[in-house]
Design a protein around this nucleic acid. Structure first.
Lengths: 227, 227
DNA sequence: CGTCAAGTGTCAGTGGCTGACACTATCCTC
DNA sequence: GAGGATAGTGTCAGCCACTGACACTTGACG
């Protein structure tokens, strides 16, 4: 699985090209190679079954070098996830101020899924990301970290919502509470999608939309009316 | 910090005494000693600054023995948390069927805090547990695991709610959605309590109650009315 | 071209965790 | 109460993630 250095010109954008020095370019290539090889290995033989040595060997660098590019083994897994999450935040920032908080979050999530491909593919093929997400959901150690990262994102989003509504986040509990409820539902959808059989973007988009619709009814204390 | 074996009679209940053989008793004592020494060290010098060797040495057993009692270093931390969580589940089971799902969860949480002391103190002093919880909230690695455990608990609670309401959990999304929103809010309260200055049971109880009250208003899309 | 700095490999070491195996202590039976 | 079955423990060797130190190589730039 060795990844040979390709001719300089053909590198496809990648993360953030910065200035075009040869040094910078090689770094970019190494990072890309490590990222893709790692995800490929994780999705085929499993996260815990893959050692850092294997990844490094496949890219012909030392283990030490791997750790200079990624703070730890998990960091590789969440490199793509990071892009996806910021994509959602960006989408939320673009919602018109007239929309209420919940509507804004809902529409941001859906529109983010619609345009995820363009944003993600320079970093990593979308299908590889999808498979990676399934690995996250099914590997306890990764799921744990994913949830903590989600909690951090949640805090970030709560501040954004507070700002939107012109509220002091430490005085008014509603931003955090609303966001907590929202991301709670998102997580349920994500979890079920991870177990379900359809690993497409469309599938998670629809699942998300459906579950969000049930939040209002679910909080009513009387469930005699069917969902 | 060596913990010497006390005379047989004076052992205070502990986890689950089972039959009174000498073997069993020694095991119980070792486990207890490991648990308390570990929590004491974690809360004083920090989780990551404490090595398993230190804990084992303090109890005069080998590192290997530590790992025979606890699957890993984290398991010690969550031994007490486990008791607390099951206490909530038990409280939920005791709510009258007439109560709606959300009301039942809310009251179960509050009543669980009211009676946590009796349930917890045989395992570990309550103040030690409180300090441990703060360690969890402030140690990224532990927070991650805590969140994953919460997600598991959440699934369990969702099944309970579905059962209560006579619903098929795979057909009706409301149980999972309601529980996700509920525990999302609980988590926000827990997080803020961890940062705040008052490490008492009363403090988290009140914080929880207050935040749950805001869930309804927070989901309304119009926040012009103050909370 | 030569100097400087950035990037890399090697090495040694720490900490969490596991399997194997021999040893010791309780238990249970005769 | 001796003696064998069995549970629990210590020791040892080893894997893997990760880190600091240091020497070496290679692109950057005057």
């Amino acid at each position: 699985m060795t990844v040979e250095q390709q001719p300089i010109a053909s590198t496809g954008a990648s993360t953030g090209a910065s200035t075009g020095g040869l040094r910078e370019l090689k770094k970019q290539r190494t990072r890309d190679a490590l990222l893709r090889v790692a995800l490929e290995l994780f999705t085929t033989k499993g996260y815990e079954q893959t050692t850092v040595d294997e990844i490094a060997d496949a890219v012909d660098v030392s283990q030490r070098t791997f750790f200079r590019y990624f703070a730890n083994k998990e960091a590789v897994v969440f490199a793509a996830q990071d892009t996806v999450e910021w994509h959602f935040v960006d989408a939320l920032r673009e919602r018109p101020p007239a929309e209420g908080p919940f509507t804004a979050m809902r529409r941001a999530a859906l529109s983010a899924w619609d345009s995820i491909e363009e944003r993600l593919s320079p970093v990593v093929p979308v299908t590889l990301y999808m498979r990676t997400y399934q690995v996250i959901e099914s590997t306890p150690a990764l799921l744990a970290i994913h949830l903590r990262r989600s909690a951090e994102l949640e805090e970030h989003v709560a501040r954004l919502i507070a700002e939107r509504e012109g509220l002091d986040i430490d005085a008014d509990p509603r931003p955090r509470v609303a966001v907590a409820a929202f991301t709670g539902v998102m997580r349920v959808a994500g979890g079920l999608w991870g177990q379900g059989g359809d690993p497409s973007v469309a599938a998670i988009r629809e699942l998300t939309a459906g579950y969000l619709d049930h939040l209002g009814p679910a909080l009513a204390d009387d469930w005699r009316e069917p969902a």
